[in-house]
Computed example of a mutant assay.
Amino acid sequence: MTRLELRGVSRAYPGGLDVLRGIDLDICSSERFVLLGVSGSGKSTLLRVIAGLDPPDTGDVCLDGQSVLGVPAERRDLGLVFQQPLLFPHLSVEGNLRFGLRVRKLPEAEIRLRVTEMLARTGLEGLGARRPHQLSGGQEGRVALARALITRPRALLLDEPLSALDAPLRRDLREWIVTLQQATGTTLLLVTHDQEEALAVAQRIGFLQNGELQQVGPPQDFYQRPTTLAVARFFGAQNFISGLQDGAVVHTALATFQAARPGHGPVTLMIRPETWQTGPAAVNTVYGVIRSATYAGAHWVYVLEVSGLTLVWHAPTAARLQPGDALTLHAPPDACWPIPDEAL
């Protein structure tokens, strides 16, 4: 469908607060791209710049290689869905779907065909005559997405459309969004603060922190190969050990670790809590005492004290250990990911 490109995009609020700082980003045609970050990181501002609702202070926004800086929002042909569905309350579901098509002055026969097709594609058959107040939250969300897609936009921009829904409904709708995007081939940019949602939807993720893109890549890289400590923490890493790396070896106060990649200099070693294994090994072995044990359903969470440092182990439910128990753990080398201190 459409390729989105950002070149050096910056924006500041009145008073000099930098919200976006020199953003460079390519989103491929027909790609599902998720822009992820905490509240205030600049995610929604970047989406509004792409949509044409806010102008950048510097930089360029291109669609299929053509700058759209001078093109108003209504002429960029982009579908936009906000956190709230913002349906027209006085119109039926069909009326909401017809609205954008009538504005574009499509023939009535074409409008009827598209509405029928979209109701079927989004599972809204039989609901066309209902008003928004007669719909569930999930149905409202689907109508909002259907209304954005029915005009066949060049790309679809979603600004946290699932955040107001309860967890089971969010899971259902994000799966539905992936299925719908695959069926239509529409380029999709989703903004969210939910890392589980990002992992479930994205083909690629961009992590935004303080107005800067810290990492862009496939979801598995964020979980297993973060480039900064902020990314690692956002994706649930809990074990960080300072050390000095020399090739593939990291020397720390706890032990000598074989790392997943070579390097040199001061690093922080990230070891995800579920990757620890019981018992000693030639390298990557630590000895600790359990300070707390918490049942988490699929696993136990054990907090250990190891030479004055706190480490966390997510253990199988079969493990039944108690506070005060001594424990020996080791981590496979491919689970020991060094983050250079200059990247922190």
Score class of each variant (00 low, 15 high):
Thr2Cys: 13
Glu5Tyr: 11
Val9His: 02
Arg11Asn: 03
Leu17Ile: 11
Asp18Trp: 07
Val19Asn: 05
Asp24Gln: 06
Asp24Phe: 06
Ser30Ala: 15
Val34Met: 12
Val34Ile: 07
Val34Glu: 06
Val38Trp: 05
Pro55Asn: 09
Ser67Asn: 01
Gly70Pro: 02
Arg76Gly: 04
Gly79Glu: 11
Leu86Gly: 06
Leu87Pro: 13
Leu87Glu: 03
Phe88Arg: 03
Phe88Thr: 06
Leu91Ala: 03
Ser92Ala: 05
Ser92Phe: 05
Val93Ile: 08
Glu94His: 10
Phe99Ala: 14
Leu101Pro: 06
Val103Leu: 14
Glu108Val: 14
Glu110Ala: 13
Arg112Met: 05
Ala120Thr: 00
Arg121Leu: 15
Thr122Ser: 03
Leu124Ser: 09
Leu124Trp: 09
Gly126Phe: 09
Ser136Asn: 04
Ala146Cys: 14
Ala148Pro: 13
Leu149Thr: 01
Leu158Met: 13
Glu160Tyr: 10
Pro161Asn: 08
Ser163Glu: 10
Leu165Ser: 04
Leu165Trp: 05
Pro168Lys: 07
Arg170Thr: 06
Arg170Lys: 12
Arg171Thr: 12
Asp172Thr: 06
Asp172Ala: 12
Arg174Lys: 08
Ile177Val: 15
Thr179Asn: 11
Leu180Gly: 01
Gln182His: 12
Gly185Gln: 14
Val191Gly: 07
Val191Thr: 08
Asp194Lys: 06
Ala200Cys: 10
Ala200Met: 11
Arg204Tyr: 07
Ile205Cys: 09
Gly206Ser: 06
Gly206His: 02
Gly217Pro: 07
Pro218Gln: 12
Gln220Arg: 15
Gln220Asp: 15
Phe222Gln: 11
Tyr223Gln: 13
Gln224Tyr: 09
Thr228Ser: 12
Leu229Val: 14
Ala230Ser: 12
Ala232Lys: 11
Arg233Ile: 02
Gly236His: 06
Phe240Trp: 10
Gly243Val: 02
Gly243Ser: 03
Asp246Val: 15
Leu254Met: 07
Ala255Met: 06
Phe257Cys: 03
Phe257Thr: 01
Ala259Gly: 04
Ala260Val: 02
Arg261Leu: 14
His264Lys: 11
Pro266Trp: 09
Val267Asp: 04
Leu269Pro: 08
Arg272Lys: 13
Thr275Lys: 04
Thr278Phe: 14
Thr285Ser: 02
Thr285His: 00
Arg291Ser: 12
Gly297Ile: 08
His299Val: 09
Leu304Phe: 00
Val312Ile: 14
Trp313Gly: 00
His314Pro: 05
Ala315Thr: 00
Thr317Glu: 02
Gln322His: 14
Pro323Ser: 00
Ile339Val: 13
Pro340His: 15
